[in-house]
Design a protein around this nucleic acid. Structure first.
Length: 589
DNA sequence: GCCGTTTTCGGCCCGACTGTTTTCAGTCG
């Protein structure tokens, strides 16, 4: 939340512009309350209730304020992990922007909980002791106390604890939070290489990396090896390791110089499936599976599924799900957001596969801000197995890219025909990424657009309109009979730019009624988000997954768009560029 | 404080590692 606050201040934006802002605010408060309660020796289950509620709010697609407006307290209680008491607290916060219960706790213990909790090893009990004995209120106090050698003499602490605190603070100062998946990819490859050289028999990256979440908080690796000592040594001595938090025979944790942690677990082959399942998560998904195990009179841990002392499953994930009476659930779906119920009822979607794309409907070239010629881009696309691409350079109002006008579009069309004929092995469609003006009109005349095969429309300016204005702007473009696809519908860029404020449901509904395709932009943007995709799929809106390539190497980003689509429960039937060219073209206006 | 394939009361996921201890509490995922 801090990051968002900073962002808001910097951009002088109203906080309401940030998507589902209230959800995160309230989640942050509940998280803090949980810590306060733990300090006060409140029963752990009450603590968990607040933690669970925070998680539920963070994972919520809909704005909690909208839910409240729609159905009041009763609607809030429909949210899992929110009961009467917490619903009332949420109501209070929506109405007054305050929560008395929380304010009281804070008055009693005026501590920067969030800051202190962010220091590795600092939990509620330690924070409380440090406050009571040394009046430590924030990270700055903590650092000073440690440097002055005051901590080592406290009961429960020692010299090592004191040194670790200083180390953890130093590391935190260099931390960077969550990392986009596409940045983590090469780092994971590097670690896998090291472990494989050290003699690991089997290596799999698990965690949010395997679930293909758009950002990851750390890297979880799972290894099968009969030389655990050697593997752990190789892992903790990697060049990129700047600190070792823990090193055991089955589990080690290190901090990497890239600003995130990596966890390594070594397991027996007979437990690999159970371990993979456990370390892939999500935590919520795991907890749900364990509850099912208990219900069926069994116990699930990272070593297997047990009936008494007998392992009934665990060597592979498929067997594990089967033994729990479930259909196999793909990692991208494991967020405990309905996948377990769907698995029970056998209604899981047949997810689009990572090699299912036949074409790419957004490609830029050196005609505008791309680096390469039409021919080079077409060759690169063909090389990775695509059967068709659409050339979609920017249009004239995007002056900084040298956007094309009607005349240049016509000229580019002639060039495309020539190259198409020359190459022969890939269909090159004529298209454009047409700029959506502030009022929702387009910057290219209808007559010129009708000569194109694919018209994508996109917002590139005036991001700070009100929710209402922006929604109307997009809907006007969507309903334009010349527009086939709405490119990167929410304008966000992972880790860089928040989405503009729109009513996504209205946008999706407009796409449905007008037969407009919504894009999943793969490169850096990952726009739409998984939850938006899921909404679109539910409403029967067609999607396309595009690279938004500006150079030949960018086509490799399609796998991230595909991952996003899978996380949004999309099947091949939902994604038009997974279809053969002729069938795809029938979907265009 | 939440929740119900079993339960409107009585449960609530499970285990590894560290540091400070001599058996465990605290933290983490």
């Amino acid at each position: 939340m801090n990051m968002i606050n900073i962002l808001c201040t910097k951009l002088k934006m109203k906080t309401s512009r940030i998507y589902a802002m209230k959800n995160r605010e309230i989640a942050a408060i509940f998280e803090e309350v949980a810590i306060y309660l733990q300090m006060q020796d409140e029963v752990i289950f009450k603590v968990r209730a607040y933690e669970n509620a925070a998680l539920a709010l963070e994972g919520l697609a809909e704005d909690v304020e909208d839910i409240y407006k729609r159905g009041g307290i009763a609607a809030l209680q429909e949210i899992p992990s929110i009961g009467r008491a917490l619903a009332e607290k949420i109501e209070e916060y929506i109405k007054t922007n305050k929560m008395e219960f929380y304010d009281e706790l804070r008055k009693k213990l005026p501590i920067d909980l969030k800051g202190l909790r962010n220091i590795e090893g600092m939990g509620p009990r330690k924070i409380l002791v440090l406050y009571k004995k040394l009046r430590v209120k924030d990270v700055d106090d903590l650092k000073k106390s440690a440097e002055a050698g005051k901590i080592r003499s406290l009961a429960g602490f020692g010299e090592k604890s004191e040194a670790n605190i200083l180390k953890a603070i130093a590391i935190k100062e260099k931390s960077r939070g969550r990392m986009p998946l596409f940045e983590a990819d090469p780092i994971v490859a590097e670690i896998v290489d090291v472990l494989s050289r050290a003699g690991a028999e089997q290596i799999t990256a698990a965690g949010s990396y395997r679930r293909r979440k758009e950002t990851i908080g750390d890297i979880d690796l799972l290894v099968v090896s009969n030389k655990p000592g050697k593997i752990m040594d190789a892992f903790t001595k990697m060049k990129s390791v700047i600190a070792v938090y823990a090193k055991g025979t089955t589990k080690s944790t290190v901090r990497l110089m890239y600003g995130l942690d990596a966890d390594l677990r070594i397991v027996e082959r007979s437990s690999f499936g159970a371990a993979l399942n456990y370390f892939t998560g999500s935590k919520d998904h795991n907890v749900a599976l364990r509850k099912i195990s208990i219900f069926r009179g069994m116990k699930l841990n990272e070593y297997g599924l047990y009936k008494g002392k007998k392992q009934v499953a665990g060597e592979n994930e498929e067997g594990l799900y089967k033994a729990l009476g479930l259909r196999y659930i793909e990692p991208e779906l494991r967020e405990n957001s309905g996948e377990i119920e769907a698995s029970k009822k056998n209604t899981l979607p047949n997810l689009i596969g990572y090699s299912d794309l036949a074409g790419d409907l957004q490609v830029q070239t050196s005609w505008t801000d791309g680096s390469s010629s039409i021919e080079d881009m077409a060759r690169a696309a063909s090389k990775i197995g695509l059967e068709y691409i659409a050339i979609t350079d920017h249009t004239k109002s995007l002056a900084m890219t040298g956007g094309l006008d009607e005349k240049k579009l016509a000229k580019q069309g002639e060039e495309i025909d020539k190259i198409s004929e020359k190459l022969g092995n890939i269909a090159i469609l004529k298209g454009a990424e047409v700029n959506i003006m502030k009022d929702g009109t387009l910057d290219i005349a209808s007559a010129a657009l009708r000569k194109l095969d694919v018209v994508g429309a996109a917002v590139h300016s005036n991001f700070a309109l009100s929710k209402d204005q922006m929604t109307r702007r997009l809907i006007r473009a969507i309903e334009n009979p010349d527009v086939d696809v709405l490119f990167h519908p929410t304008g966000r860029i992972v880790g860089k730019r928040e989405p503009y404020d729109i009513d996504i449901e209205q946008v999706v509904d407009a796409a449905k009624s007008s037969g407009t395709v919504l894009e999943i932009d793969s490169l850096e943007r990952l726009d739409m988000k998984d939850e938006h995709i899921r909404l679109a799929v539910r409403r029967g809106v067609k999607l396309c997954i595009d690279s938004d390539a500006h150079s030949p190497s960018h086509f490799s980003a399609l796998r991230f768009g595909l991952a996003q689509a899978r996380r949004g429960w999309a099947s091949k039937k939902d994604v038009i560029n997974a279809w053969p060219l002729e069938k795809m073209q029938k979907m265009l206006k």
